[in-house]
Nucleic acid binder design. Structure first.
Lengths: 227, 227
DNA sequence: TGAATGCTTCGGTTACGATCGAACTATGGA
DNA sequence: TCCATAGTTCGATCGTAACCGAAGCATTCA
């Protein structure tokens, strides 16, 4: 059994500039979409597609579909280690990689994502709902419980209207800044609209950033405590 | 400062089949000559030259000239680690690499190398001579001391004759099986001839293996104790 | 000195893979 | 039902690098 073909194959994967750039922009551990990775690598979407397919087939990346998006992340700890030791070999010892995460702290806190709430606040919402048994994850799909229905209606959201729409009610969405899931789907959107109407938050125009008011923050925290 | 070009560069080095094979045949830690590496990789000497130059320039290999040979070894522990983690990624977990060292135990013990003694016995000789102050390493070149001259003459080797030849008297030679140095040069050859004449050893014909007699072994050991 | 051996340089061929334009499918939301 | 957006497939182009034959150095040893 000769294992050298394998090492050459992995090496070849790492040996392309575009792919290398993709991989290192994933070093911070978070997932990125195909087009984001294309931009990172400075190539077109078509080219990115083929690269990403190769990287996934080679076991370096892990993919997760999310609606019309594809989120890619490093396949595991070993891959990250490999990349680190590669970087360590040449650039002995630069400070490890410039922060590629969300440059803007505000954005990391709260932002809009397809009209629902993302960022730390979005995660808080999601964690509260699942942690308190209002939503449950049934084999990948998110379901609302009786308790959840009650809570949502109490909160001023008309579930029946939402159900009339064809789009899925609950849906988890991978958060690119925190690599955690938050609530998407029509329920997610409804929550966001409700927050706006309650004046808990306001969108900063021309950006995806969402700004909470002081009162909004307080009331959000008390409504969605995380256990 | 973007470090991705570097990782791509190293990746590209690893990404060629011939180079990968060369690297993994060096995994056991010992040094190989350019032509041995060419054979390992299944390519011609010309092609090997360019590959080896790239690997050395890329900091993956370390080279040491030795007469008309060039010995290559992995540049360091980090390189070995990198290769291991690469292999680990795909072939989770084959036993690490087939033994590429000298297949023949006899050969590992004692053999001829340019008419001087190599293998464990050669190392023993070398270690004795340097350890007892008969030879000293002066900035890479090996010199004989007064004590050494006395010893050599006592042993039945005519130093003056050796000095008349144009070839260097003392010379250290990297041992491919043990990655240690042993004595080469005309003195090395003279020792070997003397051992033959004393009937301490005999060459096994058609091979580089050298066989010690029981008496030879005993006397060799007492003459060349290692401290 | 000359023969043998190890390595290198040069030139030309060949194969592979990165790239993108254009046209396509799939998904989400109105 | 329809639009906008994310990602894919196809085909053609282009550059790079691996490869070897042949001839050239360099070293050892007689």
């Amino acid at each position: 059994m000769d294992s050298t073909p394998n090492i050459a194959k992995i090496g070849a994967l790492l040996g392309d500039n575009a792919r290398a750039r993709m991989l290192s922009s994933l070093m911070h551990g978070k997932a990125l979409t195909a087009s984001e990775l294309a931009t990172e690598a400075g190539i077109t979407a078509q080219t990115a597609t083929t690269h990403l397919a190769k990287l996934e087939a080679g076991g370096l990346l892990q993919m997760r579909r999310q609606g019309r998006h594809k989120y890619f992340a490093l396949a595991g700890e070993e891959v990250a280690t490999l990349l680190e030791s590669l970087m360590g070999l040449t650039t002995s010892h630069e400070p490890l990689r410039t922060q590629t995460g969300p440059r803007d702290e505000q954005m990391r806190q709260a932002r809009v994502c397809y009209n629902h709430l993302a960022g730390n606040r979005g995660i808080q919402l999601y964690d509260h709902l699942t942690g308190s048994g209002k939503l449950v994850d049934e084999g990948g799909s998110l379901l609302i419980t009786a308790k959840g229905e009650h809570f949502v209606n109490e909160f001023g959201i008309d579930l029946d209207t939402l159900r009339a729409s064809r789009s899925p009610l609950c849906r988890s969405c991978l958060d690119w800044s925190e690599r955690r899931t938050h609530l998407a789907g029509s329920l997610g959107r409804a929550f966001f609209e409700r927050f706006e109407r309650l004046r808990w938050l306001k969108r900063v125009d021309g950006s995806r950033v969402v700004k909470f008011s002081a009162r909004g923050e307080r009331e959000f925290d008390s409504a969605f405590t995380v256990y």
